[in-house]
Simulated assay, not measured.
Amino acid sequence: MKRWRSVKVAVVLGLVCVGLLSACGSPKSTSSAANGTRTLTDTLQHQVKVPSQPKRVIGSYLEDELVALGIKPVVQWSVKNGSGTQAYLKKQLKGVPLIDYSLPYEAVTKAQPDLILMGTSSAVANGKYAQYNKIAPTYVVKNGPKVTWRATFMDVAKAVNRTSKAKTVLRQYDQKVKQARQQLKTNGRHSVAVLWVTNNTAYMVSDKSASGALLYGDLKLGEPSLVKQVSKTATADWSAVSLEKLAKLKADDIFLVNSQKSASLFKDPLWENIKAVKQQHLYQYGDASSWQYSGPIAYSQMIEMVLKALSA
C-alpha cells in the first residue's frame, strides 16, 4: 500500500486507498541533454518532462522509497496537523518540514519543488493534476491494489533517475529476506498474524499488502485460515475483525500494533482466550514502528523485529 496504502489514513480518514486507479504498460522516456530534462510517461499516461537530477522532490507517502534511494524530500507526509507522521523514518527525515497528507496547493507551492511524485491516482483526480503540474512537473507513480511495492519503488526510482541504486537496494533486501528465512526455517508451518488496535477495534492486515505481503509472501510464514478469509473480501490494507472471529484465530504468534493501550477489548474474555494471547506469544509495537507501512526501509525493520520475536 507504499501509498494511501497507509492503513492509518485508510481507517482514520475514510479508507482513501479504496478504489485507486492503476494503469498498464511500461513507462517510456526520452532525454534532452540540452536542458537537463527527461520526458517520462507516468501510470496515467501523462507525458511529464522531469529534471534529470531533481533537487527538490515532493513525494508524500513515498518517503520510504525516496530515502532508500538517497533522496531527502523537501517536505514529509503528515496527518492531523502533524500529530501523525511516519515516525519510523524520524532519523532520516530530521529537519524536513511537514505537509498535510491532502497536499494543499499553497503548501506545495511554498515548498518550491522541482518534481512532484504522486503515490495514488485518486490524489490527482477531478482536475487536480493540472493544478499540481502548474507548480512543478507532476508524475503519478504505479499504484493500486494489484501493484506491488517493488513496482512502485522501481517507478519512483525511474522518475528520479536512480534505477541503478534501486536495483542495488532490492538485491540487498532480497539477501536480507533469504537470511531471515534460513534463520526462521518455518516453511509455512509456523503461523502468524498482524493486528492493529485503535478506537477499541481490532483490524487485521490483508495477506497481499503492507506487513501481510512481507510475512506471508517474502518470509513464507504460515497464514492462518482467518487471515485468508478476511483477505478475500478486504477492500483496504486493514480490515475490522470482531472479537468473536478473533477468538478463533489459531496463529502461533501475533504481532500487535497497539495504538490504544487502554482499549477495553484487551480485558474481554474473548481476547484473553485467543490462542497466541493465552500462550503469551503476543508481541506489541507502538505507532512509531514500521508495521503499518511498506517499502524497503519499513520491511527491513519489520524483518528485524520478526527475527527478534521468533528467535527469542
Rank of each mutant, 00 (worst) to 15 (best):
K2A: 07
V7K: 01
A10T: 09
A10P: 04
V12W: 14
L13K: 06
C17D: 12
G19N: 06
S26E: 15
S26R: 03
K28C: 07
K28P: 05
S29H: 06
T30I: 05
S31A: 08
S32V: 09
R38C: 12
L40V: 12
D42I: 08
T43Q: 14
H46E: 12
Q47V: 01
V48R: 00
V48W: 15
K49Y: 15
R56C: 06
V57W: 08
S60P: 03
Y61W: 10
E65A: 02
V67Q: 01
V67W: 12
L69C: 04
L69P: 06
K72R: 08
V74T: 06
V74D: 06
V75T: 10
Q76E: 12
N81A: 13
T85C: 05
T85E: 11
Y88W: 11
L93V: 07
K94H: 07
V96R: 00
V96T: 03
L98P: 11
P104I: 07
P104C: 11
E106K: 02
V108L: 09
Q112N: 13
D114P: 10
D114S: 04
I116T: 02
L117S: 08
T120L: 12
G127V: 12
K128L: 14
A130K: 02
Q131F: 15
Q131T: 09
N133A: 13
N133K: 00
N133Y: 15
K134S: 07
I135T: 03
A136M: 03
A136G: 00
Y139D: 01
V141Y: 13
K142S: 11
K142P: 11
W149D: 02
W149V: 01
R150N: 11
T152Y: 10
T152L: 08
F153D: 00
D155I: 03
V156C: 05
T163L: 13
A166T: 04
T168Q: 12
V169G: 02
L170V: 10
Q172G: 07
D174F: 11
D174S: 06
D174R: 01
K178E: 15
K178I: 13
Q179C: 02
Q182A: 09
G188M: 07
V192Q: 03
W196P: 00
N199V: 12
A202M: 09
D207S: 12
K208N: 13
S209T: 07
Y216M: 01
L226H: 08
V227C: 09
V230H: 05
S231C: 05
T235M: 14
A236R: 01
A236W: 14
V241W: 15
L243E: 05
L243A: 05
E244Y: 14
K248R: 07
A251H: 08
A251P: 10
D252W: 13
V257D: 01
Q260T: 06
S262R: 01
D268S: 01
E272T: 05
Q280D: 08
L282P: 04
Q284I: 09
G286I: 13
D287I: 05
A288W: 14
W291F: 10
W291A: 00
Q292N: 04
Y293M: 02
G295F: 13
P296H: 05
I297D: 04
A298C: 02
A298Y: 14
S300Y: 15
Q301D: 10
Q301Y: 14
Q301P: 04
M305C: 02
L310E: 07
A312K: 11
